[in-house]
Design a binder for these strands. Structure first.
Lengths: 213, 213
DNA sequence: GTCTATAGCTGGATAGAC
DNA sequence: GTCTATCCAGCTATAGAC
């Protein structure tokens, strides 16, 4: 029951492209009707095949979720790694934040699968998850460019952006009540990190000079 | 098919208390196995009755969700409105934030039903939702005590706390990786609001004095 | 009101012909 | 590999006896 992932021969290539077609259809359905309504009968119809044919390419529904997750994670890292139209670190960070929230709110089903883990008993495989890790690394790098290296602050960053996206999706879908707050949130965050950074630095200097607070 | 809500006579009171027993059992199950696993067979067993008996007290599964939501919302407002052990507005706000995140993370199923709306096609009735509105009003009042009255800032507050709770529940259940950041987040938020408040005030003063920036 | 029994539906997964 | 046909599990909801 092992899935062939090889694409070295034309046989594998055909198989792989057929899998892609199915994943295309799956995302089209989820985008239209939401993740909760997703089922294999509708998927087969959308892909122009029958249910058993799906099982020629995937072992189970969860395997399809996994392929969908992989696709979504790849879209995510690709979007987050697109070049910025500025070299100013704070501006890049703000851009990145905008991208993140826009990515989340532009496809609610994708957001639920990738970030909310709303599918019972589903966990992505390491392969599918890998791109998401790369995206987080890119974010960490961007934060570091702004002098932000503490895990505490990285976590605060993800929580803040996730919260904005979540409120937008849950309470004002299609609107901009929370997305429009992104720039302000970034400013708030940067100001805060700089001030605590400054405090730490001056504390360190004081210690060096032997001064007690 | 209308549910009797009257408790004026002993008949209605008995009925109401039977409903409470069922809702008790429902929450016990959800607390144990999660919201996604919740079904009526298990609920009947837990409540010590059979499935049809549930329908003597509720019209549908959604009606049970609604009663559960009402209970959860009441717990929420009760917890949020407990007296604070301080009269200092910023300290009260910080306490409130701690309470909120602790409330969310202490029962994941409850968090999903109340705040994530993860049940397909379920929306709480106005009656069940009412306590949640009162809780948000209380939060608004607390923020106002700290000089924060703009809708923008209220929304930023809810997004930030929701984000912290969500990350905690989704990525570190049972831990404290994000909950321990609450105090810092509150400080960041308050500092930010004060500074923009000051900017607005001085801008207004400048306008009065006829000074251009 | 409470039970036994079951209808009726949905949806994942498979057998076997072609 | 793809189909038709079907199985089977799990679930909400109801019929009818007591």
């Amino acid at each position: 029951m092992v899935q062939k992932e090889l694409t070295s021969d034309w046989r594998g290539a055909r198989r792989q492209s057929a899998r892609e077609v199915i994943v295309d259809a799956a995302w089209a359905l989820v985008h239209k009707d939401g993740l909760a309504a997703f089922n294999l009968r509708d998927l087969a119809k959308q892909a122009g095949v029958t249910t058993p044919t799906l099982y020629a390419y995937f072992d189970s529904k969860h395997a399809i979720y996994d392929a969908m997750f992989g696709r979504g994670a790849k879209e995510f890292v690709d979007r987050m790694n697109e070049p910025f139209d500025t070299a100013d670190p704070p501006a890049m960070l703000a851009s990145s934040a905008q991208r993140f929230v826009e990515f989340c709110t532009s496809d609610v089903g994708r957001y639920h699968l990738l970030f909310q883990r709303t599918v019972p008993d589903f966990e992505p495989s390491a392969e599918s998850y890998a791109p998401a890790v790369r995206a987080l690394d890119a974010t960490r790098k961007l934060l570091a460019m702004n002098g932000i290296t503490q895990l505490r602050h990285v976590d605060l960053w993800t929580a803040m952006l996730n919260g904005l996206a979540d409120q937008q999706v849950a309470n004002d879908p299609g609107g901009d009540r929370w997305t429009r707050l992104v720039a302000e949130a970034v400013t708030m965050f940067l100001t805060h990190c700089r001030s605590t950074q400054a405090a730490r630095t001056s504390k360190a200097k004081s210690r060096i000079k032997g001064v007690q607070p």
